[in-house]
């Protein structure tokens, strides 16, 4: 398969970026999107055309949350429930022009080309997205009883890999789906419930402070989440917030 790529190139955080056009040929339809970019980079290096295109990636099996490109108007490209590394070139038409952009958000500044700084997510987690007691060794099974539906919901929320596609997709660059997933998976479980009220307030406060937008319930995040995190988590976040504020002790 042959493609025309329009790729965002930007030397560093302060440089002015622009789109560059590259052509790639003889790409296998079973090639993943990142492998296709590897092929492009190899040709850029061997033919001394340009500096290779920078993009984030790590596990390449859809679980690390490192990769993330805005491809033809969709985070992680034109497939549902997959990360960019799990997107295959068979999802594109032969000869197609593909626009590749980095995540765009004030809280995710571009570092170089397609790589953005997602430290903001770490800061939100640091604000309270954890259980603060040491949990020790593995406890005896069934020593803490957890209802099946609660465990399922917590596990679904915990699937979030923090890739940032929700922010990238949201017209407001809101991080509500990410924060709600993190708040939910802890609040649903007995170990996390203890600190739930404090956690939700600190994480939301940090989210606001970092310059993410406000959720307007458009649900582009849900449509683009590679782990299919549901909007019901955002409602749970709102509930947790209301309960925390109403029941707040000073």
């Amino acid at each position: 398969m042959n493609f025309t790529l329009k790729i965002w190139r930007q030397e560093n955080a302060k440089a002015k970026g622009r789109f560059e056009t590259y052509k790639v040929e003889n790409i296998s339809s079973d090639c993943s999107f990142l492998e296709m970019l590897d092929i492009l980079n190899e040709s850029l290096i061997s033919n001394k055309i340009a500096h290779p295109v920078c993009f984030d990636n790590d596990c390449r099996e859809g679980i690390c949350g490192m990769c993330g490109l805005y491809i033809n108007g969709r985070p992680h490209g034109n497939d549902d429930g997959v990360t960019t590394c799990q997107l295959h070139m068979r999802k594109f038409k032969d000869g197609e022009t593909i626009w590749i952009e980095p995540w765009r958000a004030k809280a995710f500044p571009v570092i170089r080309d397609l790589v953005v700084d997602r430290t903001a997510y770490d800061k939100i987690i640091q604000a309270g997205g954890y259980v603060s007691v040491s949990t020790g060794g593995v406890p005896d099974a069934n020593s803490i009883l957890i209802a099946k539906d609660k465990a399922d919901k917590a596990m679904d929320a915990a699937e979030c890999i923090g890739c940032g596609a929700c922010v990238a997709a949201c017209k407001n660059a809101s991080a509500m789906l990410f924060v709600s997933a993190k708040v939910s998976h802890l609040a649903l479980l007995p170990q996390g419930k203890v600190e739930a009220a404090n956690r939700v307030q600190k994480m939301v406060e940090k989210m606001d402070e970092l310059g993410f937008g406000n959720c307007t319930n458009t649900y582009a995040c849900e449509a683009e989440c590679p782990k299919l995190i549901k909007r019901s988590n955002i409602a749970r976040l709102n509930r947790e917030w209301i309960c925390a504020r109403v029941g707040k002790e000073k």
């Binding site: 329009k6 969709r74 765009r104 004030k106 017209k171 660059a173 310059g211 458009t218 449509a223």
Partner: peptide, 28 residues
């Protein structure tokens, strides 16, 4: 809130969004 939302994405995408969302929700 809307002004904050616009500020949250100072550089806009070149390609229009193709995410599945309702028109009503995007045009509030």
């Amino acid at each position: 809130l809307q002004i904050q939302n616009w500020k949250a994405r100072p550089v806009r995408y070149h390609q229009p969004s193709k995410s599945k969302t309702s028109t009503a929700s995007k045009t509030m």
